[in-house]
Design a protein around this nucleic acid. Sequence first.
DNA 1: TACATTATTATGTCTATACATAAAAACACA
DNA 2: TGTGTTTTTATGTATAGACATAATAATGTA
Lengths: 234, 234
Amino acid sequence: MATTRENMSFRDIKRVVLERIQKRVWAPDSLLPSEVELAEEFSSTRTTVNRALRELAEEGYLERKRKAGTRVLNAPLRKAQFNIPQVRNEIIEAGNDYRYALVTSQMIAAPSWLSAKLGTAPEQYVLYLECMHFADNAPFQYEVRWIVTDSVPTAAEADFATIGPGEWLAQELPFTDLEVSFTATQADQRIADFLDAREGDPIFSTQRTTWLRTQPVTHARLYFAPGYKMTTRL
Amino acid sequence: MATTRENMSFRDIKRVVLERIQKRVWAPDSLLPSEVELAEEFSSTRTTVNRALRELAEEGYLERKRKAGTRVLNAPLRKAQFNIPQVRNEIIEAGNDYRYALVTSQMIAAPSWLSAKLGTAPEQYVLYLECMHFADNAPFQYEVRWIVTDSVPTAAEADFATIGPGEWLAQELPFTDLEVSFTATQADQRIADFLDAREGDPIFSTQRTTWLRTQPVTHARLYFAPGYKMTTRL
DNA sequence: TACATTATTATGTCTATACATAAAAACACA
DNA sequence: TGTGTTTTTATGTATAGACATAATAATGTA
């Protein structure tokens, strides 16, 4: 039976362990053998087994506690990973042509909800932008963005007619913290016009806020053309 | 300077390296020193440096290639992680009471779009369910689900009046593959009624399809009450 | 019996070393 | 000059052994 002739790589061990979990050889909530025991079974070392189990734990299959041991999670709290792509890349990878256009650019006093969200002084001036991203000349995304020029002084002179603010920011400065959220909203007249939709259409929207350490950098609202679908497989 | 007196843990090394990336000490697209060199600088070993760099690469900051070396990614293709929670947990963790109710349960011939999506024989019979999930007695999620009873024979006798199909499936059998997608849809009359919304309201919707190896298991469409927002921070 | 202390143990991490492997660079040859 | 082969090198992974640490179990004391 299952005696493992050759010594196995941590990948092999991961595979075997995952199989046993999925086939319920090790039932949910049950305890696995210790690393030492597994190392012996797989004629490997604890270091290698450790890596296998550690990764499986990171992937949400196992829970590990010192002394208590390694336990199979009952509700495999699986994590979906979404890349946070640049629109340009998202469009190009879908095999379409990318085109960008600036709609509006002006300095405004930050509305109070924005100051609150970013934690900036009320009424602080920020750069307000609206832009469009096209895929094969069809509207793909309508972007509304606020940039805290105090945190990004160079933004005042950047030429957002030729490069999208997302892209510009990414290459201009790094960010350390990011909040993303997704909602369904309703197209108002303006959004509908830009996205070639009808007023009232359901619109998939992403909001992103980024900080550089404690400094607020930017807040963006991205409205996708009707029919947009965000998908991931795992 | 920056000489590191004590020997550092892989966590310390990660922190320092990440700082240097974010402060552009190592610019985007540039090459990092080799593991051996870094190990020397941090008065550590290659094994430890390797783990630090490997994890940073997994987190999307670095790109590593044998012989070519370790490179700072220009567009830090950062990955947002969303947990895929059970509704029950999602509601309870928000501090609300959870209540579940079964709306419909019947065997039907799979519609053709479903057969195509799952890769099952056309017209194959599947279990069709509609259910409601409440948070503090307010509608939270309206669930429409199809279960391939051929793959999950025990589903035919399960009592979905007392337990939600998602929860039941999770404890009944594991899954190996999962596809999740998110869209904005429009509430039709039925959805509006269930979610206490108005017809035409924008509705955030999740679709999940799961397989056990190559066997299709279930497909679910989850409609969230208006105002739902999916958020993650990183 | 209740509570504080100590021992035990499984995981967490580091070290030093070795060999494997992919890919770039150097080289040889036609 | 172009092409196929060899060398070099940085990362990838495995091993054996050590100490650290958190959490449980066992023990001793009031």
